[in-house]
Nucleic acid binder design. Structure first.
Length: 160
DNA sequence: GCCAACGTTGGC
DNA sequence: GCCAACGTTGGC
């Protein structure tokens, strides 16, 4: 019997396809990548909540059009994001130390590219997705939770 | 390229 | 602890 601590949960992560695309994920060793570079506390806290096996929607932001491209899953739970301590990295944060790394990341692995790319504008038309974090005005969170109902709706749409 | 929305910073 | 200024995100 699943309970709150064992039930599979669902998330959405944003990536600019010019920066890291679903193809890039597929081309990565074991089709797995670390999700480094998140520098927002709320987003980091959501990553801390991620458990192995949780579902992840892969979303293209700043794309033409923006939308959901496919699905990945969490294969490693939160651990320190070393890029925060690399002065040469774009996401360098001098406040991050070995003793207190501040920023964390998870590893995600490709699961399925949708047959249908799901443009943001199409998602906005769907009743079952009303209230979804992604669709809220001014929503900028790069890591956000997705409800089971939203997950099922989007997967069904993506598979056509 | 514009700009609304939001988070962060820093003076007080 | 308030809040104005500033920087960033991301849709359009």
């Amino acid at each position: 019997m699943p309970n709150a601590t064992t039930a599979r949960r669902y998330w959405l992560v944003k990536s600019e396809p010019d920066c890291f695309s679903y193809d890039d994920l597929l081309a990565s060793p074991k089709q797995t990548t670390c999700w480094s570079g998140v520098r927002n506390y709320q987003a980091r806290n959501f990553m801390r909540d991620m458990k192995k096996g949780d579902g992840v929607l892969f979303y293209y932001s700043s794309a033409e059009p923006p939308g959901v491209v496919g699905v990945a899953e969490v294969v490693r739970e939160a651990y320190p994001d070393g890029t925060a301590r690399d002065p040469k990295d774009d996401h360098y944060d001098p406040k991050s130390t070995e003793a207190n790394p501040i920023w964390e990341m998870v590893d995600i692995k490709a699961v399925e590219r949708f047959d249908n790319f799901l443009p943001l504008n199409d998602l906005r038309q769907v009743r079952a997705l009303e209230g979804m974090e992604l669709l809220k005005r001014g929503s900028r969170l790069s890591v956000q939770p997705v409800s089971a109902k939203e997950w099922e709706t989007i997967c069904r749409m993506g598979r056509g």
